[in-house]
Amino acid sequence: MGKIQLVAPSMEYEEQIREYRNEFLANGDSMDGTSFLREYEDIQDWLDFIERNTREETVTEGLVPATEFLAVRVSDNKLVGMIDIRHTLNDFLLKFGGHIGYSVRRSEWNQGYAKEMLKQALFFTQKLGLEKVLVTCNKTNIASAKVIQANGGLLENELLEDGEPVQRYWIDL
């Protein structure tokens, strides 16, 4: 695994964000942690959307303030993943979504990026003043469960979302 850093999304990464989105759509992969990127063909519109959602006074109704990061490999500046950090929880996030959602592009799987992304995100959550964070994953997503556990996640329980078990892990900061 190459070293990664979490960076704010910007038009500097427009083409890579578009390629990231297209790779996920082509593979039929879940786009967790991408702040609804699936819904946006225009990258500037997506950037405007995530910027509005960073603040309580402008957040989209039904959502909570959040900060989106791109996980970029330092050696070649390649976008390998995305991670969304929610500053608070609403009822849905408390049950199923948690404080942090993330994804790694399939072409970069099994290299430790998700584990490092979550580790770096936890430092950011401390800056937000959180003392513990909730991270969830589908029970069938064993790789994600291992990432969460490697970062100190303790399984609290499982809830059913649309008939599928979702595991809820808490991480003390």
Rank of each mutant, 00 (worst) to 15 (best):
K3G: 02
Q5E: 14
Q5H: 08
Q5Y: 09
A8M: 12
S10F: 04
E12K: 15
Q16G: 04
E19F: 00
Y20C: 02
N22A: 08
F24N: 08
L25K: 11
S30M: 13
D32W: 13
F36P: 04
F36G: 02
R38K: 15
Y40F: 15
E41Y: 10
D45S: 14
L47M: 07
E51C: 12
T54Y: 10
T58S: 12
V59C: 07
F69W: 06
L70Q: 05
V72N: 03
K78H: 10
L79H: 02
G81C: 07
I83D: 01
I83N: 00
N90I: 10
L93H: 02
L94P: 00
L94F: 11
H99N: 14
H99E: 01
Y102Q: 11
V104T: 13
S107T: 13
N110V: 11
Q111V: 01
Q111Y: 07
A114L: 07
M117T: 01
M117V: 03
M117H: 05
K119E: 11
K119H: 13
A121E: 02
F123K: 15
F124D: 01
F124T: 12
T125M: 04
T125V: 10
K127S: 14
E131Y: 09
V135M: 04
C137T: 13
C137P: 01
K139H: 11
T140Y: 14
A143N: 12
K146Y: 08
V147P: 08
A150D: 12
N151W: 00
G153R: 04
E158A: 13
G163N: 06
E164V: 14
Y169Q: 08
W170C: 00
I171K: 05
